[in-house]
């Protein structure tokens, strides 16, 4: 009887699952997904960029010191603050001004606020570059500050124009426009 019980226990042990390889692989997968998770891109709003065959890769070191400005549509199909926009959802240009936003680091801006922001940023950069107070306040004294405009492809041009005007008036002339690699079909 006792011998029978011992034989049963041995059998149970011999089929014990070896979880070590599984844990190893899971750790590797976990490491991969954790490292590739892009939490650093929060200042970039979700926009569908226009495709360009001639785009230049946006290298990480080039993005340093650059401001990102987003022109994006208010998210659709959400419970709070939702707007239903047939054109936007159907990938057609949406010309309803109230649906569009200009945001920098998650904060939305109107025309006047944008002008103030551009002037402040240009002033700070000019002071950093060693310009005098008079030069720093002069919009015709340009600054090397670069601004990337990331606009949704369905955005009306007047929003981008508004941004360009605000930046030009502050002496910021180095503009970059976000574009995406064309989708492979």
């Amino acid at each position: 009887m006792g011998g029978h019980r011992k034989a049963k226990a041995d059998t149970e042990e011999s089929v014990y699952m070896n979880v070590i390889p599984m844990v190893d692989i899971m750790f590797l997968l976990l490491l991969f997904f954790m490292l590739t998770a892009d939490f650093g891109a929060r200042e970039l709003e979700a926009v569908e960029l226009a495709a360009g065959r001639t785009i230049r890769e946006d290298k990480q070191e080039e993005a340093k010191g650059r401001m990102n400005l987003n022109v994006y549509h208010t998210p659709t199909k959400m419970e709070s603050g939702a707007v239903t926009c047939g054109d936007f959802d159907a990938m057609r240009p949406c010309r309803e001004d109230s649906h569009w936003n200009i945001a920098i680091r998650g904060k939305r801006y109107g025309s006047k606020q944008l002008e103030t922001w551009a002037k402040d940023e240009a002033y700070k950069q000019k002071k950093k570059d060693g310009k005098s107070e008079k030069e720093a306040l002069d919009p015709l004294t340009t600054t090397e500050l670069r601004v990337m405009i990331r606009a949704d492809l369905r955005a009306p041009f007047r929003f981008i124009q508004e941004v360009q005007e605000a930046l030009a008036q502050a002496g910021i002339y180095k503009l970059e426009y976000g574009a995406a690699e064309p989708k492979k079909t």
């Binding site: 930046l167 030009a168 910021i172 970059e176 976000g178 995406a180 690699e181």
Partner: peptide
């Protein structure tokens, strides 16, 4: 994503 430059 990439970029195009056009200075003012």
């Amino acid at each position: 994503e990439g970029k195009m430059e056009a200075w003012l």
